[in-house]
Design a binder for these strands. Structure first.
Length: 670
DNA sequence: AGCACGCCGACT
DNA sequence: GTCGGCGTGCTC
């Protein structure tokens, strides 16, 4: 017998299959083996076993030993091989995601993460009929191994978690395993509390990047040996060493955190779908505000849509008010607080209720807007907001790179009040404090709050009602439930609405819906005030009506017209190096190469390859970065990635010191 | 990536 | 002679 093996390596050059003879050993795909390699011995993983001898003329060596304890299963190597072609990454980089770095703790010294956690779970007396229906449909699918994907579209407090738990329970009943994914590590605690109460602590394992190497290894081993049947965690938990997975659940499926931002840049949803194919398992995507891509798939019948419209506790949804900041300006109010928001805050404070103010970060991009009419400069080709670059004093499209002069007067209404939008972050707390001198104001954002304990104490103070007004970034939109919040204010929704990203509208809808969930948790209806210079944007109308469908119907038309997902992909190819010239030259060369590859098809696809752009490299060690953006039509992704992978090999053969990283539908282009 | 091989200049 | 610099090629 002959085995195709990928060795533990660091080089792109050796990231390929090597054929070994199995000898006397009984070898399966997924097995970790020790093999002779060159003058040394290395470890590798078996990807395939056949009895056909390869044609090529090279000496075939024999596998020395199988490391049973650290071996993986056949599905894992299959998924890793698929990831290589989908993300243009190395076999071994894909494989590494499935293998914990650490070593086992010494016997008796195992440390249990979340040891002091209290299990909190009380099964509700009854499920709503919508919940009953969802549970029975999903359970049937798990039972019959139909490999379905469900999109569970449920408003906040509609009891999605109960549906998740019942689905997992069904999988366990069938002798299968389950993975529960949450978007952020901070959210795992609440989930574990409930799951531990429902399924017993011994049956669950936690996997996320904040565990120590040793803890992670031990949890991983508990899953691999079948001691734990349910994996809970952030996106890396999708790589749990489980077999026979009955169901994977992705809570808040629209969240950006499901897409890895560091290399290898995998997409959690893709990986989940791929893994479940082998086991005919079921995927449940839950969200109150599904991603437009997922919803389209549900509409197309690729996913099965389940709606939960009824709120479990029947609390009325908050009232959403859209405030026109142009009007405020015309009425002589130039402050960051509209008259309406001011009024709501005052009355909330009077009745000892609390207030949350969301100040969405300006981030790295600045845009120009007319305060008279709300006009925002957008790229006519790409349809995204232009970003102001101070250095060049130009408006630049972050997709195609076209540059435009900064307008002196508004092209629409000829007003001179067209200028940069955004206010200094520090300013906000100051303004709020002086506007409400008798209120206790606290501030929550990740820039100023560095320590975990600091963050917790700010939240604790708010929970204990010691704080009247909490000002913060996106952080306040998520996290804990507070029952005394009467008013939520979004100070300037335009900052999210005009991010240079095709998803900016989707993200705004999600953000407003999410913060709305913070208002009026008790029996009283809460109020949400959203301030904007562009109140006529369809996104806000949909927010006001709590109508996702309405938002979707408008947004999907734009996506189709612009060929953005789900109708096409945007592929960003990054080049980093310590050699500036090499970086530039390589991205130029890549552009020509890619255009050349596509030209032969004679469909004009090469027009989708944008010219290279220079950018700063924040994260990597290399000092220079350039990138090339490619607009890729629907169904062509695999071919495009294949070309990119080939180009990478080309560079490697020449031993050029330049890194190439590919990112499909990146969340930010800076 | 590593490591060996090999071809060239500089030195005890 | 021979030591070591690094350009090149290979690992089943």
């Amino acid at each position: 017998m002959f085995a195709s093996i990928v060795i533990e390596n660091k080089s792109k050059y050796t990231d390929t299959f090597y054929t070994y003879e199995t000898g006397e050993l009984f070898v399966n795909p997924g097995d970790k083996v020790r093999v002779p390699f060159g003058k040394k011995e290395v470890y590798g993983y078996v990807f395939d076993v056949t009895d056909e001898k390869p044609d090529e003329e090279f000496e075939i060596k024999t596998i020395l030993e199988v490391d049973e304890e650290n071996s993986l299963n056949p599905e894992i190597v299959k998924t890793a091989a698929w990831m290589k072609s989908r993300y243009a990454i190395k076999y071994y980089d894909a494989l590494k995601l499935f293998i914990p770095k650490g070593k086992a703790a010494k016997p008796g010294k195992e440390k249990e993460p979340y040891k002091d956690l209290i299990s909190r779970y009380s099964k509700p007396e009854h499920f709503t009929s919508e919940q009953e229906n969802a549970i029975s449909v999903i359970s049937e699918s798990i039972e019959k191994n139909t490999n379905d994907i469900f999109l569970l579209h449920g408003v906040t407090s509609s009891g999605k978690t109960e549906v998740y738990m019942e689905s997992i329970s069904k999988a366990l009943e069938m002798g299968k395993t389950a993975i529960m994914l949450v978007p952020e590590i901070s959210l795992t605690t609440q989930v574990i509390e409930r799951f531990a109460g429902r399924f017993g602590k011994e049956n669950i394992a936690v996997l996320h990047s904040k565990l120590t190497e040793r803890e992670r290894f031990d949890e991983w081993m508990r899953l691999k040996t079948g001691k734990a049947k349910i994996a809970i965690g952030a996106r890396i938990a999708v790589f749990s060493p489980l077999e026979n997975i009955g169901v994977i659940i992705m809570d808040e499926e629209h969240e950006a955190t499901y897409k890895a931002d560091m290399s290898p840049k995998f997409d959690t949803l893709d990986v989940a779908v791929k893994r479940l194919k082998t086991y005919n398992g079921v995927l449940v995507l839950g969200s109150a505000t599904p991603s437009v891509t997922s919803y389209e798939r549900a509409k197309e019948g690729i996913y099965r849509l389940i709606c939960l419209k009824e709120r479990y506790n029947k609390t009325p949804l908050p009232m959403i008010h859209i405030v026109d900041m142009r009007e405020e300006l015309r009425n002589g109010n130039a402050s960051i607080l509209s008259e309406k928001l001011n009024r709501y805050i005052c009355s909330a404070l009077d009745s000892k209720k609390q207030v949350i103010l969301l100040q969405n970060r300006r981030g790295y991009s600045n845009f120009v807007s007319c305060r008279e009419c709300g006009y925002v400069m957008k790229c006519p080709e790409c349809g995204i907001s232009l970003t102001y670059h101070k250095k060049e004093d130009k408006m630049i499209c972050h997709y195609c790179g076209k540059k435009y002069d900064v307008p002196k007067v508004c092209p629409d209404c000829k007003s001179k009040k067209i200028k940069l939008v955004g206010f200094g972050t520090e300013q906000v707390e100051e303004v709020i404090s002086s506007a409400f001198p008798n209120a206790v104001v606290d501030r929550l954002d990740l820039d100023t709050v560095t320590k975990r304990s600091e963050l917790d104490s700010i939240l604790k103070r708010f929970e204990d009602k010691k704080t009247d007004i909490l000002v913060g970034t996106q952080l306040v939109a998520k996290g804990l439930d507070f029952d005394n919040v009467a008013v939520v204010g979004v100070l300037l929704a335009d900052t999210t609405l005009n991010l240079p990203d095709y998803r900016s509208q989707e993200r705004t809808f999600q953000l407003v819906t999410q913060v709305s969930g913070r208002a009026g948790r008790g029996d009283e209806q809460g109020n949400v005030v959203v301030q904007t210079y562009e109140p006529e944007n369809f996104t806000f109308k949909a927010c006001m009506n709590h109508d996702y469908e309405m938002f979707y119907n408008d947004e999907i038309k734009i996506r189709e017209f612009m060929n953005y997902p789900p109708f096409g992909d945007i592929i960003m190819v990054n080049f980093t190096s310590n050699d500036e010239e090499l970086c530039d030259a390589t991205s130029d060369r890549f552009t020509k190469y890619m255009k050349n590859c596509l030209k032969t098809q004679d469909k004009g696809l090469e027009k989708g390859v944008m010219n290279p752009k220079v950018a700063f490299n924040f994260k990597g060690q290399d000092s220079f970065r350039t990138y090339v953006l490619i607009k890729c039509p629907k169904g062509e992704r695999n071919r495009y990635v294949y070309y990119i992978d080939n180009f990478q090999s080309l560079l490697f053969n020449e031993r050029l010191k330049v890194n190439v990283v590919c990112d499909v539908n990146p969340y930010s282009i800076v």
